[in-house]
Nucleic acid binder design. Structure first.
Lengths: 182, 182
DNA sequence: GGCTACATGTAAGCGGTTACATGATTTA
DNA sequence: TAAATCATGTAACCGCTTACATGTAGCC
C-alpha cells in the first residue's frame, strides 16, 4: 500500500518537522488510526528525499547537534493531494486475536469465557474513558475548514468504535449469564 | 504474536482437515476476524508438524492424488487450550487508511471530503447488509455450550462494528452539511 | 475435451517490530 | 553529575501478500 508515505507527506503538508517530531506525532495525534516507529520513519524519509517529494535543511541545536528539518516539496504536495482524493476499498479482514479466541471458546469452560469477556470489556472501557477525556478539549465544535474539524471527526470515530465494542461485549456477557444452563 | 498457529490449532481442534480446507475456512468462516493465504498456511503446517503439535495421514483422492489430512495431537491441544485462556492486551493502534485520509482532509475541498465520506459509507453499508444476511441462519439463539453460540457472538460483533461505523460516517456527513458555511 | 475446483508447494518482496548502536542537550 | 529527552541511524527477523509453479479430480 505504501500508506506510511502519505502519513508522512500529510504531516509535512501541515508543517515542517524532524523525523523525531514525526515519531512523536505517530505516538500521540495519529495513534488511533496509524503508527510507525522511528526505525521505519528514517529510512522512509531518506527514500522520499531521494524521490524529490520532501527536502530538508540542517539546523544546529545547541552547539553541534544536527537536526534535519524536513518540508514537503511541490512534487510531494501534488502526490499527497492526489492520494487524498482516492476512494479506497475497505480492508476485508480486521484481524482481531480476541475475536478469534472467542470464536473457539466453546472448547473452554463457560466461566473462563465469561472472564475473558469481562477482562476485554474492562480494557475497552479504559480506552473509551481516555478518548472521552481527549474530546473535552473541543469545547465548541470547530469550523469545517479548520484542521481541528478533521481531528474532531476521527476522535468521534474512535469513541463510537469503542462504545460499540463495549456494548457488544456487554451483550455477550449478558447472553452468557442469562443462558447459563442451556 | 504467532496467532496463525492458534487459528490452525483451533480449526483442527474442531475437526481434522487438509491445508486446502483451512484455506477455505479462512476465506469464509473466520474471514471477519482472521485470514491467511495458502502460501502462509502450508509452511506453518510443516512447522507445526515438526513441533509435534499436529500430525497428518495421507489420503488418496481418486486414484493418485495425495491429500494430507491433518489432526491435532495431545501436545497441540494442550498448547491451544493454554492460549485460549490468555487475557490478551488490546492492540493500541487499529490502522485505517480512510481515517488517516479523513484526518488530513482539511487540505482538500469540502465537497471532496463529503464524497469520500459517502463512498466509504456505501461500502460499509454493503458489508453490513451481507453480515445481516449471515445472521438469518440463526433462527433461534443456539445454546451456550455449542459451537454455534461462539459463531453467533462473533457475527453479532461484526454487525455491531459495522453499524457503529455507518452511524459515525452518517454523523460526519451530517456535520459537514449542516456546517457547510462555517 | 474443457472448465472449475481440488490440492500442495516455493520465492521474492514489502511493511513492520525489536534490538542494536551512538551521541548531544536539557533539566533536576 | 546523573537522568531524561532529543536526535538519527542500521540489522535481523517476522508476518504476510503476490506471483510463480505444478498437477489431479469431477463435472458438463
Amino acid at each position: 500500500m505504501g500508506t506510511l508515505k502519505y502519513a508522512i507527506l500529510g504531516l509535512l503538508n501541515r508543517r515542517s518537522m524532524t523525523g523525531y517530531d514525526m515519531t512523536k506525532e505517530f505516538e500521540t495525534t495519529l495513534f488511533e488510526f496509524w503508527s510507525a516507529k522511528h526505525s521505519q520513519i528514517y529510512p522512509e524519509l531518506k527514500y522520499l528525499t531521494e524521490a524529490g517529494l520532501i527536502e530538508y535543511k540542517i539546523e544546529i541545536a545547541g552547539s553541534v547537534l544536527e537536526k534535519k528539518l524536513y518540508s514537503i516539496t511541490e512534487a510531494g504536495r501534488k502526490d499527497f493531494q492526489q492520494w487524498e482524493l482516492l476512494q479506497h476499498k475497505i480492508k476485508p479482514t480486521h484481524k482481531d486475536e480476541f475475536r478469534l479466541q472467542l470464536f473457539f471458546s466453546d472448547s473452554i469452560a463457560p466461566e473462563r469465557r465469561l472472564s475473558l469477556l469481562q477482562s476485554q470489556l474492562q480494557e475497552h472501557q479504559e480506552r473509551l474513558e481516555h478518548l472521552r477525556n481527549n474530546l473535552q478539549k473541543f469545547s465548541v465544535l470547530p469550523p469545517v475548514q479548520q484542521t481541528e474539524f478533521s481531528d474532531y471527526l476521527v476522535l468521534l470515530g474512535a469513541i463510537m468504535r469503542e462504545e460499540s465494542c463495549c456494548s457488544w461485549l456487554e451483550t455477550c456477557i449478558r447472553l452468557c449469564l442469562e443462558r447459563k444452563d442451556m
